[in-house]
Write a protein that binds this DNA or RNA. Structure first.
Lengths: 106, 106
DNA sequence: TGCACGCTTGGTTGAATAGCCAAACATATC
DNA sequence: GATATGTTTGGCTATTCAACCAAGCGTGCA
């Protein structure tokens, strides 16, 4: 693995790390439906506002969402919809795992 | 977020976490070209064999690769090729980030 | 049987991450 | 200006994760 490849893999890892949390996955999917305020997401996720805010900043730093302040509220938007396609691939993995598990049990 | 949704997001997070490391990303891509032995991957990654072996077990536990022992060697194979499509989406994000960065610098 | 090779597992250490609370900040309204 | 609402940031603790070394296991061969 040469230096260029390594750098490239690290750049990709940063983005994937930003996705690697259940709350953030939920938020990404929710934002896929349209923009949401921090307050709205906090209600849905059911964690402390500060926690949700930090999750959002992780997503923002990775370039996955953008934010837009309007009045007192800050609205977040999904910037890269193709992420949603990826989730369907993850779904494939989950189903394959479930099938294998059943096969082993039988 | 109800219990079912939460469980589902956690299941997806487990899989995405397994992808969230530069060495594992590299290995996934390499395995996309065909099966590889642990030794071959170790050479390419340039880390300790034990480290690479542990990375591979993470991928295997997530259901992303399968292993097959033939003689002294263990060959790993990518089980879910759609993962590779996802990397192209990540590429999109990286390019978008780079463009934005350039725009800010200019 | 003993040894070499390829791989995995256990153990330890240091770094990164997630969660909450408290405090600060931004905006709107009175 | 004072206060309320919405959001972010700092600080702390507990947990998770990655890397290496050392030891163990599985297979093939002398």
């Amino acid at each position: 693995m040469d230096a260029k490849t390594k750098y490239h893999c690290e750049a990709r890892a940063k983005i994937i790390k930003a996705l690697a949390h259940s709350s953030r996955i939920f938020m990404i999917e929710e934002l896929g439906k349209g923009e949401r305020s921090v307050y709205a997401l906090t209600e849905m996720v059911g964690a402390d506002v500060s926690t949700v805010s930090k999750h959002l900043s992780v997503l923002k730093n990775a370039g996955l969402v953008t934010s837009d302040r309007r009045g007192q509220q800050v609205f977040y938007t999904l910037r890269v919809p193709c992420i949603l396609n990826f989730f369907s691939c993850v779904e494939t993995v989950l189903q394959a795992n479930a099938m294998e598990h059943n096969a082993l049990v039988e």
